[in-house]
Write a protein that binds this DNA or RNA. Structure first.
Length: 173
DNA sequence: ATGGTTGCAAGGCAA
């Protein structure tokens, strides 16, 4: 089984690229992040015409995750991580696909100060860890795929891109 | 060298 993950950064603007990628790569399952579309704006019919069943958790402007399965509908087992009732972000959706539990996640980046968002990367990591432990306690195979927003060092090498947490300066090594 | 891009959605914000 071929399982893929794709941060689409706006599914409306990225739809043609997504369809081309699906046709070329033919994943059995695909996890999408950053839909940046409200629930009613996901192009469900177009994706079904492309041969994929889909479940998704939309959100206006930001975040949003979806799971696609080729030739079938994903059997949804959860949306949202457990724990924080304040977490209204759409960042996790999970399905049972051919006997494999697949979680599609989009964790917050580490730049957001707590004052700007109740949902921090650490909060989400804690919720994810707790949920992952529960999944691992089951007998079934588990895959947690997506955008973890984790870097290997304290200083992010943004590849020349703008770092919004750095007072409008270039981020440098 | 004090800058730059993209997407959402309709101005500013997030990444």
């Amino acid at each position: 089984m071929k399982i893929a993950t794709f941060n689409v950064n706006g599914i409306s603007a990225r739809l043609s690229a997504l369809l081309r990628w699906l046709a070329e790569s033919k994943p059995d399952a695909a996890c999408l992040q950053e839909l940046k579309a409200p629930q009613e704006k996901l192009p469900e019919a177009t994706l079904r015409e492309a041969g994929y069943g889909v479940i998704w958790h939309g959100q206006k402007s930001w975040n949003g995750v979806a799971m696609l399965t080729r030739g079938a509908d994903p059997v949804e087992s959860r949306r949202g991580l457990p724990g924080d009732p304040e977490d209204i972000h759409s960042r996790y959706i999970e399905a049972l696909i051919n006997g494999v539990r697949v979680g599609c996640l989009y964790l917050p980046n580490g730049n957001l100060a707590p004052v700007r968002s109740l949902i921090t990367n650490c909060d989400s990591c804690n919720a994810l860890t707790k949920h992952a432990e529960e999944l691992l306690a089951t007998a079934e195979p588990v895959i947690l795929a997506g955008d973890y927003n984790v870097i290997p060092t304290d200083i992010e090498d943004c590849g020349g891109r703008f770092d919004p947490s750095d007072n409008n300066h270039w981020c440098r090594r």
